[in-house]
Each structure stands twice: as structure tokens, then as C-alpha cells.
Amino acid sequence: MDILSQTLRKEGFFALYKGMLSPLIGIAGVNSLLFASYGISKRIISPFPNLSLKETAAAGAMAGAANAIIASPGV
């Protein structure tokens, strides 16, 4: 609590959020990639909009694989 009060007193409220811009921008890109690959995966699996549970799981797995391959840092 002492560190919190000192930081607020010396640097202000926004000092608590220093360094957060880069991760916020990065997670927005990762989320957009994940949603886009999920939509593409659903269309690859079935042209019909209503997918079964297994088909939905497969589309999610494909989207997760695409996310792991494209968005994983340093691999």
C-alpha cells in the first residue's frame, strides 16, 4: 500500500498504467486474428451457418492452431 500511495503522490494516477499501450495494441491484433480465423474455419468446415458441436469444436481448434502459429512470439 505504501508503494501505491507513493506512486500516486509522486507520479499521479496514470503512472499505474505506464507500459500498457503496447500490450493493449498487441492483444487487439491477436483477438482480430483469432476471430477472423474462426470465421474462416467455420466456412471451411461447412457452408451452412448452423454447425454441430463437433464442427464448432473443430473450427475453434483450427482457429487456435492458426493463432498459435501466427501470433506466437519468438518461435
Rank of each mutant, 00 (worst) to 15 (best):
I3T: 10
S5F: 14
Q6S: 09
T7K: 07
T7Q: 08
T7I: 04
L8D: 03
R9L: 13
R9Y: 13
K10P: 00
K10E: 08
E11M: 09
E11S: 08
E11G: 00
G12H: 01
F14M: 13
A15P: 00
A15M: 01
L16C: 03
L16V: 04
L16E: 04
Y17M: 09
K18P: 00
G19V: 05
G19T: 06
M20Y: 05
L21R: 13
L21I: 03
S22Q: 06
S22A: 05
S22V: 12
L24W: 15
L24P: 05
I25M: 06
I27W: 11
I27P: 11
A28V: 10
A28F: 13
V30L: 08
V30H: 11
N31H: 09
N31K: 09
S32A: 14
S32G: 08
L33Q: 06
L34F: 15
F35Y: 13
A36E: 02
A36G: 06
A36S: 10
A36C: 09
S37H: 08
S37E: 12
S37K: 12
Y38A: 08
Y38R: 13
G39S: 14
G39R: 10
I40L: 12
S41F: 01
S41D: 00
K42L: 03
K42C: 06
R43I: 04
R43A: 04
I45H: 11
S46Y: 08
P47G: 05
F48P: 00
F48G: 09
N50F: 10
L51M: 07
L51P: 03
S52W: 01
L53K: 09
T56D: 06
T56Q: 05
A57I: 13
A57N: 13
A57M: 13
A59E: 04
A59H: 04
G60K: 05
A61W: 03
M62V: 06
A63D: 02
G64I: 03
A66P: 06
A66M: 08
N67P: 04
A68V: 09
A68R: 10
I69R: 02
I70A: 02
S72E: 08
P73Y: 06
G74F: 09
V75H: 14
V75S: 15
V75I: 15
